[in-house]
Nucleic acid binder design. Structure first.
Lengths: 140, 140
DNA sequence: AGAAATTTGTCCGTATGTATC
DNA sequence: AGATACATACGGACAAATTTC
């Protein structure tokens, strides 16, 4: 079979599995993940797919990779009972306009807006969170 | 020729070039970037390399990609300090932390946060609304 | 110190799936 | 339905950083 991909892409399935292992402690904080070559053997996928999966975790801040060394599980934010930020340092998502934003942008309440969020930290502590709202790509 | 690559990787060179075009206005905000196949021809690299370059821009928030449509230049790169806030368009107030902000700032849900809002307009139309959240002045 | 092995980084070419026009 | 465009996946090759012997 060449490469069918229905449903969830394999790299996401693998990313979820690895995430599971990190959060459950199977791969403890600070530990090295198995090498890409090992993961390709375990999941029976190509190296590119593994790298894509690891890239997902890296963007989520769960791991950090070093050239020639390997990929480390990130040390836990020691708050430990504080929920993990569900998003990385910067990201965008679509949100529904609250009444104030709706009025400003002259759209219906609940209309889709683009929110870009960026987080400023010093060391670990969050200093500021900036959310920028815009209209979805300008209708021409 | 196999694939020599010294110095800056090609995908970064290409990302910088595209970034240049977006910030200089050669590719105006909201416009479609050339298709991956076109960029492949222009830069004479494989599609994978082009996708890697575009991924850099996407993470930086300079572009957004839609399946089957193409990649759009974002309305507003963050670098350019555009329009005067024209004053009076900004204000601050105290708000209650929603779960996401609470997690980021490591405070209780509902705790007081400072929100500063500024509104950018061109002519009359609202272009963007920026909300910055911070912890209240520490009493110390 | 040096060579080899390991591991991640970059790049290519190809094939096929899926969404949009 | 056909054409276009992005998404996923494979396999191979070589480069560069690190560790090991």
């Amino acid at each position: 079979m060449p490469t069918p991909h229905y449903g969830t892409p394999r790299y996401r399935v693998i990313a979820n599995e690895l995430k599971e292992r990190i959060e459950s402690g199977v791969i403890p904080p600070g530990a090295l993940l198995p090498a890409e070559s090992v993961l390709t053997a375990e999941f029976r996928v190509s190296r590119g797919t593994i790298r894509q999966a690891v890239a997902v975790l890296r963007e989520a801040g769960l791991v950090a990779t070093e050239h020639g060394r390997g990929t480390y599980a990130s040390p836990r934010p020691q708050g430990s009972r504080v929920a993990r930020p569900s998003r990385s340092e910067t990201g965008h998502r679509e949100i529904a306009a609250d009444p104030e934003l709706a009025a400003l942008f002259a759209v219906e309440v609940g209309a889709a807006l683009l929110e870009q969020q960026s987080i400023s930290r010093t060391h670990e502590a969050v200093v500021a969170v900036v959310r920028t709202y815009r209209l979805p790509r300008p209708s021409q």
